[in-house]
Design a protein around this nucleic acid. Structure first.
Length: 432
RNA sequence: GUGACUGUAGCUCAGCUGGUAGAGCCCCGGAUUGUGAUUCCGGUGGUCGCGGGUUCGAACCCCGUCAGUCACCCCA
Protein backbone atom coordinates (compact mmCIF):
# COMPACT_ATOMS: atom_id res chain seq x y z
CA UNK A 1 0.00 0.00 0.00
CA UNK A 2 1.43 3.31 -0.96
CA UNK A 3 0.96 6.27 1.29
CA UNK A 4 -0.55 8.20 -1.60
CA UNK A 5 -4.24 7.97 -1.86
CA UNK A 6 -5.37 6.41 -5.06
CA UNK A 7 -6.98 8.98 -7.24
CA UNK A 8 -10.52 8.21 -8.23
CA UNK A 9 -10.79 7.55 -11.93
CA UNK A 10 -13.43 9.69 -13.48
CA UNK A 11 -14.93 10.23 -16.90
CA UNK A 12 -13.47 13.03 -18.99
CA UNK A 13 -15.15 16.39 -18.56
CA UNK A 14 -18.11 16.77 -20.85
CA UNK A 15 -18.10 13.08 -21.74
CA UNK A 16 -20.93 11.35 -19.98
CA UNK A 17 -21.91 7.82 -19.18
CA UNK A 18 -25.42 6.98 -20.24
CA UNK A 19 -26.89 4.62 -17.66
CA UNK A 20 -29.96 2.47 -17.36
CA UNK A 21 -32.79 3.22 -17.32
CA UNK A 22 -31.90 6.10 -19.66
CA UNK A 23 -30.35 3.71 -22.14
CA UNK A 24 -33.79 2.28 -22.71
CA UNK A 25 -35.09 5.67 -23.79
CA UNK A 26 -32.08 6.12 -26.06
CA UNK A 27 -32.76 2.78 -27.70
CA UNK A 28 -36.39 3.68 -28.25
CA UNK A 29 -35.50 7.04 -29.76
CA UNK A 30 -32.92 5.54 -32.07
CA UNK A 31 -35.25 2.74 -33.14
CA UNK A 32 -38.04 5.13 -34.05
CA UNK A 33 -35.74 7.43 -36.00
CA UNK A 34 -34.26 4.51 -37.89
CA UNK A 35 -37.69 3.18 -38.77
CA UNK A 36 -38.73 6.54 -40.17
CA UNK A 37 -35.55 6.71 -42.25
CA UNK A 38 -35.73 3.23 -43.70
CA UNK A 39 -39.40 3.83 -44.40
CA UNK A 40 -38.32 6.44 -46.91
CA UNK A 41 -35.48 4.51 -48.46
CA UNK A 42 -32.57 5.85 -46.43
CA UNK A 43 -29.75 3.39 -45.74
CA UNK A 44 -27.34 3.35 -42.85
CA UNK A 45 -23.68 4.20 -43.34
CA UNK A 46 -21.17 3.53 -40.55
CA UNK A 47 -18.21 5.85 -40.43
CA UNK A 48 -14.95 6.00 -38.46
CA UNK A 49 -14.75 8.30 -35.47
CA UNK A 50 -11.25 9.47 -36.39
CA UNK A 51 -10.39 11.14 -39.69
CA UNK A 52 -7.48 13.02 -41.18
CA UNK A 53 -7.50 16.54 -39.80
CA UNK A 54 -7.32 17.83 -43.35
CA UNK A 55 -10.85 16.59 -44.06
CA UNK A 56 -12.39 18.96 -41.54
CA UNK A 57 -10.12 21.86 -42.42
CA UNK A 58 -11.31 21.65 -45.99
CA UNK A 59 -14.98 20.99 -45.35
CA UNK A 60 -16.12 22.86 -42.26
CA UNK A 61 -13.98 25.92 -42.91
CA UNK A 62 -10.74 26.92 -41.23
CA UNK A 63 -12.25 30.18 -39.99
CA UNK A 64 -15.06 28.55 -38.07
CA UNK A 65 -14.89 28.19 -34.30
CA UNK A 66 -15.28 24.44 -34.59
CA UNK A 67 -12.04 24.10 -36.50
CA UNK A 68 -10.08 26.91 -34.93
CA UNK A 69 -10.63 26.03 -31.29
CA UNK A 70 -12.94 23.09 -30.67
CA UNK A 71 -11.43 20.07 -32.39
CA UNK A 72 -9.74 17.17 -30.67
CA UNK A 73 -6.67 17.00 -32.89
CA UNK A 74 -3.57 14.92 -32.22
CA UNK A 75 -0.65 13.26 -33.96
CA UNK A 76 -0.74 9.48 -34.18
CA UNK A 77 2.37 7.31 -33.97
CA UNK A 78 3.18 7.92 -37.60
CA UNK A 79 3.08 11.66 -37.09
CA UNK A 80 -0.14 12.07 -39.08
CA UNK A 81 -2.53 14.68 -37.82
CA UNK A 82 -5.81 13.04 -36.87
CA UNK A 83 -9.03 14.50 -35.49
CA UNK A 84 -11.96 13.10 -33.55
CA UNK A 85 -14.86 13.96 -35.81
CA UNK A 86 -16.74 17.09 -34.75
CA UNK A 87 -19.66 16.28 -37.08
CA UNK A 88 -20.76 13.64 -39.55
CA UNK A 89 -21.38 15.27 -42.90
CA UNK A 90 -17.72 15.59 -43.91
CA UNK A 91 -17.01 11.92 -43.16
CA UNK A 92 -20.10 10.86 -45.03
CA UNK A 93 -19.11 12.83 -48.11
CA UNK A 94 -15.55 11.51 -47.89
CA UNK A 95 -16.76 7.93 -47.72
CA UNK A 96 -19.10 8.49 -50.65
CA UNK A 97 -16.28 9.83 -52.80
CA UNK A 98 -13.85 7.13 -51.70
CA UNK A 99 -16.22 4.32 -52.66
CA UNK A 100 -17.53 5.81 -55.85
CA UNK A 101 -21.02 6.13 -54.44
CA UNK A 102 -21.68 9.38 -56.26
CA UNK A 103 -20.59 8.17 -59.67
CA UNK A 104 -23.77 8.42 -61.77
CA UNK A 105 -25.70 7.57 -58.65
CA UNK A 106 -27.92 9.19 -56.10
CA UNK A 107 -27.74 8.23 -52.44
CA UNK A 108 -29.99 8.45 -49.43
CA UNK A 109 -27.86 7.79 -46.33
CA UNK A 110 -28.08 8.12 -42.58
CA UNK A 111 -25.62 7.73 -39.72
CA UNK A 112 -25.67 7.84 -35.96
CA UNK A 113 -22.91 8.10 -33.41
CA UNK A 114 -20.69 10.18 -31.14
CA UNK A 115 -19.14 13.51 -32.15
CA UNK A 116 -16.47 15.50 -30.29
CA UNK A 117 -16.09 19.20 -29.69
CA UNK A 118 -13.94 20.78 -26.99
CA UNK A 119 -16.41 23.31 -25.61
CA UNK A 120 -17.31 24.28 -22.07
CA UNK A 121 -20.09 21.88 -21.08
CA UNK A 122 -23.54 23.19 -20.27
CA UNK A 123 -27.12 22.11 -20.70
CA UNK A 124 -27.54 20.43 -24.07
CA UNK A 125 -23.86 20.82 -24.94
CA UNK A 126 -21.21 18.25 -24.18
CA UNK A 127 -17.72 17.38 -25.41
CA UNK A 128 -18.80 13.96 -26.56
CA UNK A 129 -22.32 14.11 -27.88
CA UNK A 130 -24.40 12.07 -30.27
CA UNK A 131 -25.88 13.01 -33.58
CA UNK A 132 -28.21 11.22 -35.88
CA UNK A 133 -27.99 12.63 -39.36
CA UNK A 134 -29.20 11.97 -42.89
CA UNK A 135 -27.66 13.05 -46.17
CA UNK A 136 -29.06 12.94 -49.70
CA UNK A 137 -26.62 13.19 -52.60
CA UNK A 138 -27.29 13.84 -56.27
CA UNK A 139 -30.40 16.02 -56.22
CA UNK A 140 -30.50 19.76 -56.81
CA UNK A 141 -34.26 20.09 -56.52
CA UNK A 142 -36.29 21.16 -53.50
CA UNK A 143 -38.35 17.94 -53.47
CA UNK A 144 -35.52 16.12 -51.68
CA UNK A 145 -35.37 19.00 -49.20
CA UNK A 146 -39.07 18.71 -48.44
CA UNK A 147 -38.66 14.95 -48.11
CA UNK A 148 -35.90 15.25 -45.52
CA UNK A 149 -37.74 17.92 -43.58
CA UNK A 150 -40.74 15.58 -43.59
CA UNK A 151 -38.49 12.83 -42.22
CA UNK A 152 -37.65 14.97 -39.20
CA UNK A 153 -41.27 16.00 -38.84
CA UNK A 154 -42.31 12.34 -38.79
CA UNK A 155 -39.67 11.49 -36.21
CA UNK A 156 -40.80 14.24 -33.86
CA UNK A 157 -44.41 13.21 -34.28
CA UNK A 158 -43.72 9.56 -33.56
CA UNK A 159 -41.51 10.44 -30.60
CA UNK A 160 -44.29 12.57 -29.16
CA UNK A 161 -42.08 15.65 -29.07
CA UNK A 162 -44.02 18.87 -28.49
CA UNK A 163 -43.32 22.54 -29.05
CA UNK A 164 -40.83 22.45 -31.92
CA UNK A 165 -40.78 25.21 -34.52
CA UNK A 166 -39.32 24.86 -37.97
CA UNK A 167 -37.39 27.81 -39.32
CA UNK A 168 -36.15 27.97 -42.88
CA UNK A 169 -34.09 30.40 -44.93
CA UNK A 170 -32.22 30.58 -48.19
CA UNK A 171 -28.59 31.63 -48.28
CA UNK A 172 -28.56 31.79 -52.08
CA UNK A 173 -25.70 30.66 -54.22
CA UNK A 174 -22.05 31.48 -53.73
CA UNK A 175 -22.24 34.69 -55.75
CA UNK A 176 -25.24 35.89 -53.77
CA UNK A 177 -23.46 35.32 -50.50
CA UNK A 178 -20.43 37.24 -51.64
CA UNK A 179 -22.54 40.20 -52.72
CA UNK A 180 -24.57 40.13 -49.55
CA UNK A 181 -21.47 39.81 -47.44
CA UNK A 182 -20.05 42.98 -49.01
CA UNK A 183 -23.31 44.85 -48.52
CA UNK A 184 -23.56 43.78 -44.90
CA UNK A 185 -19.99 44.80 -44.19
CA UNK A 186 -20.53 48.16 -45.86
CA UNK A 187 -23.56 48.73 -43.67
CA UNK A 188 -21.91 47.60 -40.44
CA UNK A 189 -18.44 49.10 -40.76
CA UNK A 190 -19.57 52.69 -40.00
CA UNK A 191 -21.49 51.32 -37.00
CA UNK A 192 -18.71 49.09 -35.77
CA UNK A 193 -18.23 50.71 -32.37
CA UNK A 194 -21.90 50.11 -31.54
CA UNK A 195 -21.60 46.38 -32.06
CA UNK A 196 -20.80 43.97 -29.27
CA UNK A 197 -17.22 42.76 -28.95
CA UNK A 198 -17.73 39.39 -30.62
CA UNK A 199 -19.54 40.89 -33.55
CA UNK A 200 -16.78 43.44 -34.07
CA UNK A 201 -14.32 40.60 -34.32
CA UNK A 202 -16.48 38.74 -36.81
CA UNK A 203 -17.13 41.77 -38.97
CA UNK A 204 -14.17 40.90 -41.15
CA UNK A 205 -13.81 37.15 -40.57
CA UNK A 206 -17.38 35.85 -40.70
CA UNK A 207 -19.89 38.72 -40.98
CA UNK A 208 -22.90 36.51 -41.73
CA UNK A 209 -22.76 35.10 -38.23
CA UNK A 210 -23.35 38.55 -36.77
CA UNK A 211 -26.93 38.11 -37.94
CA UNK A 212 -27.79 35.61 -35.22
CA UNK A 213 -26.04 37.46 -32.41
CA UNK A 214 -27.96 37.35 -29.13
CA UNK A 215 -26.86 40.84 -28.20
CA UNK A 216 -29.88 43.17 -28.08
CA UNK A 217 -28.02 46.29 -29.22
CA UNK A 218 -26.51 44.44 -32.13
CA UNK A 219 -29.93 43.17 -33.14
CA UNK A 220 -31.18 46.75 -32.98
CA UNK A 221 -28.55 47.84 -35.48
CA UNK A 222 -29.30 44.85 -37.69
CA UNK A 223 -32.92 45.94 -38.09
CA UNK A 224 -31.78 48.45 -40.66
CA UNK A 225 -29.27 46.14 -42.33
CA UNK A 226 -29.61 44.75 -45.84
CA UNK A 227 -31.63 41.53 -46.00
CA UNK A 228 -30.27 38.39 -47.60
CA UNK A 229 -33.49 37.54 -49.38
CA UNK A 230 -33.26 40.76 -51.44
CA UNK A 231 -30.03 39.48 -52.95
CA UNK A 232 -31.28 36.07 -54.06
CA UNK A 233 -30.98 35.21 -57.73
CA UNK A 234 -34.11 34.40 -59.72
CA UNK A 235 -33.19 30.74 -59.61
CA UNK A 236 -32.64 30.64 -55.87
CA UNK A 237 -35.88 32.49 -55.23
CA UNK A 238 -37.86 30.03 -57.32
CA UNK A 239 -36.15 27.11 -55.64
CA UNK A 240 -36.99 28.48 -52.21
CA UNK A 241 -40.58 29.24 -53.22
CA UNK A 242 -41.11 25.71 -54.48
CA UNK A 243 -39.79 24.26 -51.22
CA UNK A 244 -42.31 26.35 -49.33
CA UNK A 245 -45.06 25.12 -51.60
CA UNK A 246 -44.12 21.51 -50.90
CA UNK A 247 -44.08 22.14 -47.16
CA UNK A 248 -47.53 23.69 -47.32
CA UNK A 249 -48.80 20.66 -49.20
CA UNK A 250 -47.27 18.41 -46.54
CA UNK A 251 -49.02 20.41 -43.87
CA UNK A 252 -45.74 21.19 -42.15
CA UNK A 253 -45.73 24.59 -40.52
CA UNK A 254 -42.68 26.79 -40.86
CA UNK A 255 -41.40 30.31 -40.35
CA UNK A 256 -38.95 32.12 -42.56
CA UNK A 257 -36.10 33.51 -40.54
CA UNK A 258 -33.98 35.71 -42.79
CA UNK A 259 -31.30 35.86 -40.13
CA UNK A 260 -30.87 32.12 -39.98
CA UNK A 261 -27.32 31.23 -40.99
CA UNK A 262 -25.18 28.19 -40.35
CA UNK A 263 -21.97 27.85 -38.43
CA UNK A 264 -20.36 25.70 -41.06
CA UNK A 265 -19.09 27.24 -44.29
CA UNK A 266 -20.29 24.64 -46.74
CA UNK A 267 -23.98 25.50 -46.90
CA UNK A 268 -25.81 27.24 -49.75
CA UNK A 269 -29.42 27.94 -50.63
CA UNK A 270 -31.82 26.16 -48.28
CA UNK A 271 -30.98 25.97 -44.58
CA UNK A 272 -33.33 24.96 -41.80
CA UNK A 273 -33.45 24.52 -38.06
CA UNK A 274 -35.90 22.95 -35.59
CA UNK A 275 -36.06 24.92 -32.37
CA UNK A 276 -37.53 23.91 -29.05
CA UNK A 277 -38.26 26.91 -26.86
CA UNK A 278 -38.09 26.46 -23.15
CA UNK A 279 -35.06 24.24 -23.24
CA UNK A 280 -32.54 26.94 -22.37
CA UNK A 281 -29.80 28.37 -24.50
CA UNK A 282 -29.13 25.32 -26.66
CA UNK A 283 -32.57 25.23 -28.19
CA UNK A 284 -31.70 23.87 -31.63
CA UNK A 285 -32.59 20.19 -31.77
CA UNK A 286 -32.00 19.59 -35.43
CA UNK A 287 -30.40 21.63 -38.19
CA UNK A 288 -29.31 21.18 -41.75
CA UNK A 289 -29.26 22.48 -45.25
CA UNK A 290 -27.99 22.25 -48.77
CA UNK A 291 -24.29 21.93 -49.55
CA UNK A 292 -23.70 21.72 -53.28
CA UNK A 293 -20.01 22.50 -53.21
CA UNK A 294 -18.79 20.32 -50.34
CA UNK A 295 -18.11 17.12 -52.26
CA UNK A 296 -16.08 18.95 -54.87
CA UNK A 297 -14.30 20.89 -52.16
CA UNK A 298 -12.91 17.75 -50.60
CA UNK A 299 -11.85 16.22 -53.88
CA UNK A 300 -14.87 14.52 -55.44
CA UNK A 301 -16.76 15.23 -58.63
CA UNK A 302 -19.29 18.02 -58.21
CA UNK A 303 -22.22 16.44 -56.39
CA UNK A 304 -25.10 18.30 -54.78
CA UNK A 305 -25.96 17.36 -51.20
CA UNK A 306 -28.66 18.05 -48.67
CA UNK A 307 -28.80 16.83 -45.10
CA UNK A 308 -29.45 17.39 -41.44
CA UNK A 309 -28.08 16.43 -38.06
CA UNK A 310 -30.03 15.95 -34.85
CA UNK A 311 -28.58 16.30 -31.36
CA UNK A 312 -29.65 13.20 -29.47
CA UNK A 313 -28.75 14.43 -25.96
CA UNK A 314 -30.97 17.45 -26.52
CA UNK A 315 -33.75 15.37 -27.98
CA UNK A 316 -33.67 12.83 -25.15
CA UNK A 317 -33.52 15.53 -22.48
CA UNK A 318 -36.47 17.42 -23.94
CA UNK A 319 -38.51 14.22 -24.15
CA UNK A 320 -37.74 13.58 -20.48
CA UNK A 321 -38.65 17.11 -19.47
CA UNK A 322 -41.89 16.88 -21.37
CA UNK A 323 -42.70 13.52 -19.77
CA UNK A 324 -43.32 12.17 -23.24
CA UNK A 325 -44.93 8.76 -23.41
CA UNK A 326 -41.76 7.34 -24.89
CA UNK A 327 -39.79 8.44 -21.82
CA UNK A 328 -41.79 6.21 -19.51
CA UNK A 329 -40.20 2.97 -18.46
CA UNK A 330 -41.63 0.27 -20.60
CA UNK A 331 -39.47 -2.78 -19.99
CA UNK A 332 -41.30 -5.06 -17.66
CA UNK A 333 -40.18 -8.28 -16.07
CA UNK A 334 -42.66 -11.02 -16.86
CA UNK A 335 -41.28 -13.75 -14.65
CA UNK A 336 -39.00 -13.73 -11.60
CA UNK A 337 -37.51 -17.11 -10.74
CA UNK A 338 -37.13 -17.87 -7.04
CA UNK A 339 -35.36 -20.95 -5.78
CA UNK A 340 -33.59 -22.43 -2.78
CA UNK A 341 -30.67 -24.84 -2.99
CA UNK A 342 -28.38 -25.73 -5.84
CA UNK A 343 -30.60 -28.46 -7.29
CA UNK A 344 -33.53 -26.09 -7.44
CA UNK A 345 -31.35 -23.34 -8.86
CA UNK A 346 -30.32 -25.64 -11.69
CA UNK A 347 -33.93 -26.40 -12.51
CA UNK A 348 -34.75 -22.69 -12.38
CA UNK A 349 -31.94 -21.97 -14.85
CA UNK A 350 -33.49 -24.51 -17.20
CA UNK A 351 -36.91 -22.95 -16.99
CA UNK A 352 -35.44 -19.50 -17.49
CA UNK A 353 -33.94 -20.66 -20.78
CA UNK A 354 -37.27 -22.03 -21.96
CA UNK A 355 -39.16 -18.86 -21.03
CA UNK A 356 -36.57 -16.53 -22.53
CA UNK A 357 -36.66 -18.56 -25.73
CA UNK A 358 -40.33 -17.77 -26.31
CA UNK A 359 -39.64 -14.07 -25.83
CA UNK A 360 -40.56 -13.57 -22.20
CA UNK A 361 -38.56 -11.35 -19.93
CA UNK A 362 -37.43 -13.86 -17.28
CA UNK A 363 -35.09 -12.86 -14.47
CA UNK A 364 -33.37 -15.43 -12.27
CA UNK A 365 -32.58 -14.63 -8.66
CA UNK A 366 -28.87 -15.35 -8.26
CA UNK A 367 -26.96 -15.68 -5.01
CA UNK A 368 -27.91 -16.81 -1.53
CA UNK A 369 -31.06 -15.16 -0.23
CA UNK A 370 -34.01 -16.01 1.92
CA UNK A 371 -37.29 -16.68 0.15
CA UNK A 372 -38.68 -13.57 1.71
CA UNK A 373 -35.88 -11.53 0.26
CA UNK A 374 -36.30 -13.09 -3.17
CA UNK A 375 -39.99 -12.22 -3.17
CA UNK A 376 -39.18 -8.68 -2.12
CA UNK A 377 -36.85 -8.29 -5.03
CA UNK A 378 -39.40 -9.74 -7.41
CA UNK A 379 -41.96 -7.24 -6.21
CA UNK A 380 -39.58 -4.30 -6.23
CA UNK A 381 -38.61 -4.97 -9.81
CA UNK A 382 -42.21 -5.10 -10.89
CA UNK A 383 -42.30 -8.74 -11.95
CA UNK A 384 -45.79 -9.89 -12.92
CA UNK A 385 -45.35 -13.52 -11.94
CA UNK A 386 -43.03 -15.37 -9.58
CA UNK A 387 -41.91 -18.95 -10.13
CA UNK A 388 -40.93 -20.79 -6.97
CA UNK A 389 -38.72 -23.86 -6.80
CA UNK A 390 -38.15 -24.76 -3.17
CA UNK A 391 -36.87 -28.08 -1.89
CA UNK A 392 -40.30 -29.73 -2.15
CA UNK A 393 -40.88 -28.56 -5.70
CA UNK A 394 -37.36 -29.47 -6.68
CA UNK A 395 -37.78 -33.04 -5.47
CA UNK A 396 -41.14 -33.40 -7.20
CA UNK A 397 -39.99 -31.66 -10.40
CA UNK A 398 -42.76 -29.12 -9.99
CA UNK A 399 -42.85 -25.37 -9.77
CA UNK A 400 -45.06 -22.89 -7.96
CA UNK A 401 -46.58 -20.07 -9.96
CA UNK A 402 -47.69 -16.99 -8.10
CA UNK A 403 -49.24 -13.87 -9.55
CA UNK A 404 -47.62 -10.85 -7.94
CA UNK A 405 -50.10 -8.31 -9.16
CA UNK A 406 -51.61 -6.70 -6.08
CA UNK A 407 -55.07 -6.79 -7.52
CA UNK A 408 -54.87 -10.57 -7.91
CA UNK A 409 -56.52 -12.86 -5.40
CA UNK A 410 -54.22 -13.65 -2.46
CA UNK A 411 -54.53 -17.41 -2.91
CA UNK A 412 -53.40 -17.31 -6.49
CA UNK A 413 -50.45 -19.68 -6.22
CA UNK A 414 -50.68 -22.89 -8.18
CA UNK A 415 -48.30 -25.78 -8.71
CA UNK A 416 -47.52 -27.33 -12.08
CA UNK A 417 -44.98 -29.76 -13.49
CA UNK A 418 -41.72 -28.14 -14.57
CA UNK A 419 -42.19 -29.63 -18.04
CA UNK A 420 -45.40 -27.65 -18.42
CA UNK A 421 -43.94 -24.37 -17.21
CA UNK A 422 -44.06 -22.59 -20.58
CA UNK A 423 -47.76 -23.25 -21.12
CA UNK A 424 -48.66 -22.54 -17.53
CA UNK A 425 -46.81 -19.24 -17.45
CA UNK A 426 -48.17 -18.19 -20.83
CA UNK A 427 -51.74 -18.86 -19.71
CA UNK A 428 -51.13 -17.14 -16.44
CA UNK A 429 -49.78 -13.99 -18.10
CA UNK A 430 -52.64 -13.93 -20.57
CA UNK A 431 -55.17 -13.98 -17.76
CA UNK A 432 -53.70 -10.79 -16.27
C1' G B 1 -11.96 30.65 -23.50
C1' U B 2 -15.18 34.33 -19.85
C1' G B 3 -18.72 34.90 -15.69
C1' A B 4 -22.10 33.50 -11.63
C1' C B 5 -23.58 29.79 -8.29
C1' U B 6 -22.64 24.95 -6.18
C1' G B 7 -19.55 20.45 -4.26
C1' U B 8 -21.35 16.59 3.16
C1' A B 9 -23.30 8.52 2.94
C1' G B 10 -25.10 4.97 -3.48
C1' C B 11 -29.42 9.04 -4.03
C1' U B 12 -32.01 13.74 -1.98
C1' C B 13 -30.39 16.95 1.59
C1' A B 14 -29.66 19.08 7.11
C1' G B 15 -25.45 20.70 9.96
C1' C B 16 -26.86 27.92 14.28
C1' U B 17 -21.65 33.22 14.82
C1' G B 18 -15.36 27.40 13.72
C1' G B 19 -15.78 22.70 19.13
C1' U B 20 -13.25 16.35 14.95
C1' A B 21 -20.75 14.40 11.38
C1' G B 22 -26.96 13.63 11.02
C1' A B 23 -32.00 12.52 8.60
C1' G B 24 -34.98 10.35 4.78
C1' C B 25 -34.68 6.95 0.72
C1' C B 26 -31.77 2.64 -0.81
C1' C B 27 -29.32 -1.88 0.87
C1' C B 28 -28.87 -5.98 4.73
C1' G B 29 -30.98 -8.61 9.08
C1' G B 30 -35.05 -9.53 12.52
C1' A B 31 -40.48 -9.42 14.30
C1' U B 32 -43.16 -13.90 10.53
C1' U B 33 -37.76 -21.27 11.31
C1' G B 34 -40.70 -21.83 2.80
C1' U B 35 -43.74 -16.34 0.35
C1' G B 36 -43.83 -9.79 -2.07
C1' A B 37 -47.24 -3.96 -0.57
C1' U B 38 -47.88 -1.72 4.77
C1' U B 39 -45.96 -1.40 10.05
C1' C B 40 -42.21 -1.91 13.95
C1' C B 41 -37.02 -2.88 15.63
C1' G B 42 -31.86 -3.22 14.54
C1' G B 43 -27.54 -2.80 11.24
C1' U B 44 -23.82 -1.58 7.05
C1' G B 45 -22.13 2.81 4.90
C1' G B 46 -18.70 9.42 4.92
C1' U B 47 -10.45 11.09 6.08
C1' C B 48 -17.44 16.56 4.54
C1' G B 49 -14.35 17.12 -4.05
C1' C B 50 -8.85 17.55 -3.63
C1' G B 51 -4.32 20.36 -1.81
C1' G B 52 -2.39 24.10 1.17
C1' G B 53 -3.10 28.07 5.00
C1' U B 54 -5.20 30.57 9.61
C1' U B 55 -6.46 28.37 14.56
C1' C B 56 -5.60 25.01 20.72
C1' G B 57 -9.38 23.15 17.28
C1' A B 58 -11.99 23.71 10.31
C1' A B 59 -17.60 20.55 6.82
C1' C B 60 -17.84 25.85 8.32
C1' C B 61 -12.86 31.17 7.53
C1' C B 62 -8.73 32.28 3.52
C1' C B 63 -5.93 30.78 -1.05
C1' G B 64 -5.34 27.40 -4.94
C1' U B 65 -7.13 23.40 -7.81
C1' C B 66 -10.63 19.97 -9.91
C1' A B 67 -15.61 18.93 -11.00
C1' G B 68 -20.94 20.09 -11.60
C1' U B 69 -24.90 23.55 -13.00
C1' C B 70 -26.54 27.72 -15.73
C1' A B 71 -25.40 31.81 -18.91
C1' C B 72 -21.90 34.17 -22.57
C1' C B 73 -19.19 32.41 -26.75
C1' C B 74 -20.29 28.50 -30.14
C1' C B 75 -23.55 24.92 -32.00
C1' A B 76 -26.77 19.65 -32.82
Amino acid sequence: MSADKKQQLKAIRGMNDILPPDTELWQNVETICQQVLSGRGYQEIRLPIVEQTQLFLRSIGADTDIVSKEMYTFDDRNGDSLTLRPEGTASCARAGIEHGMFYNQQQRLWYCGPMFRHERPQKGRYRQFHQLGAEAYGWTTPDIEAELIAVVHDMFERLGLRGTRLQINSLGDQQTRTQFRDALQNYLRPRKDKLDEDSQRRLESNPLRILDSKNADTQEILNGAPVLSDFLSEESSQHFALLQEFLVQLGIEFEINTKLVRGLDYYNDTVFEWINDGFGAQSTVCAGGRYDSLVEQIGGAATPGFGFAMGLERLVQILQEQNAAIAERSSKIDVYLISTGDAARGQALNMQSKLAKIGLNAVLHCGQSSLKNQFKRADKQGARVALIVGEEESAAKTVGIKILDRSAAPQSQQTVKQNDVVNAVTNCLESL
